[in-house]
Computed example of a mutant assay.
Amino acid sequence: MAYLRLVPHNVNINFVGLRFVTFLISSLVIAATLITLCTKGLNYGIDFQGGYIFEVRLNQEPNIPELRDKLASLGLGETAIQKFGAENDVLIRVEKKANEGSNETESQQKVIDAVKGLLGADQDYRRVETIGPKVGEELVRNSMKAVLFALAAMLIYIAARFEWQFAVCGIIALVHDTIGILALFSIFPLEFNETAIIAILITAGYSINDTIVIFDRIRENLRKYKKMELGALINKSLNETLSRTVLTATTTLTSLLALYFFGGSVISSFSLPIIIGIMIGSFSSIFLASPLLLYLNLKRGEDTPAPEVAVKKA
């Protein structure tokens, strides 16, 4: 039976030998992210920064893509529109700009006039509300808690399935992946909203799955090659699982790239951080999580005594 291989069967890449270069790259990315977070911060979207909500019942069935483009042309900042409730109901969210004046009523009225001028004053505006900054702050806290709880659950799972050294390396890789996605939102002018949190959690799930496959092969080889030098054993395990890692990442990225290029603006903005996250997760599984095992006194089992075999005398 023939199998699809994107990597030659006899590949022998010295991943462990490259660890200082890859550690340096990861350190530079983390440092750049922390600097930009401290100096520039994140470009929070409507969900975190606050804004205005309009629940409108239109006189006819809405053309969402067309309305989305017209809202974007108003220059109100980030806007979002989606169907809500009945067939002709839409929910519109408009960003509350940080540089707006202190007159809340005047700012809100400006946005209301712009939206009504676009949709028409004869529509049924069933709800118009302002999302305050406290709601955004609470959402930020809850989102961070969700990410931390997910990392803690993965730490417990890996520690239970493997040794604690594997758990530590896996969590370091996941923290690296999280910071890598934050780099995308802090260095580049992308809006940090609820899709960013979803992208972080998806990346963490994908990355830890990839890492566990490699860890499982390392553990298997630890039992099989008890006298092999640890660095060589890690290299062997990484090369043996490389075809699977590349194939999985390639098929996943192919689907995501199709969504990014052909899925429209909303789906594209959701797909981009996941695409970057998949690449970062694959990098950390190979070049970060596994080589770090060299520094955590991983038990090899060489001293385990062989079972005695009783020999009967004739």
Rank of each mutant, 00 (worst) to 15 (best):
2 A>F: 14
5 R>C: 09
7 V>M: 03
11 V>L: 11
18 L>S: 14
20 F>S: 15
21 V>S: 12
26 S>M: 07
27 S>A: 15
28 L>F: 14
29 V>S: 09
37 L>D: 00
39 T>L: 14
45 G>R: 00
55 E>R: 13
57 R>Q: 15
60 Q>S: 14
68 R>S: 14
68 R>A: 13
69 D>K: 15
75 G>R: 02
75 G>V: 04
75 G>N: 05
81 I>W: 00
82 Q>D: 10
85 G>M: 09
88 N>W: 08
89 D>R: 09
90 V>F: 08
91 L>G: 08
93 R>S: 05
94 V>T: 05
100 E>T: 14
102 S>H: 15
103 N>Q: 10
106 E>V: 14
108 Q>R: 13
111 V>T: 06
118 L>S: 03
119 L>Q: 00
121 A>N: 12
128 V>I: 12
135 V>Q: 07
140 V>S: 13
147 V>F: 07
149 F>Y: 12
152 A>R: 03
158 I>Q: 05
162 F>C: 03
166 F>C: 07
168 V>H: 00
171 I>G: 07
174 L>K: 05
178 T>K: 04
181 I>N: 11
185 F>V: 07
186 S>W: 02
191 E>V: 15
192 F>R: 03
200 I>E: 02
201 L>Y: 09
205 G>N: 01
206 Y>G: 07
214 I>F: 10
218 I>R: 02
228 M>W: 11
231 G>D: 11
238 L>W: 05
253 L>M: 06
255 S>L: 10
263 G>P: 01
263 G>W: 00
273 P>T: 02
274 I>W: 00
276 I>P: 09
282 S>Q: 04
284 S>V: 05
286 I>V: 10
288 L>M: 10
289 A>D: 01
305 P>Y: 03
305 P>Q: 03
313 K>H: 15
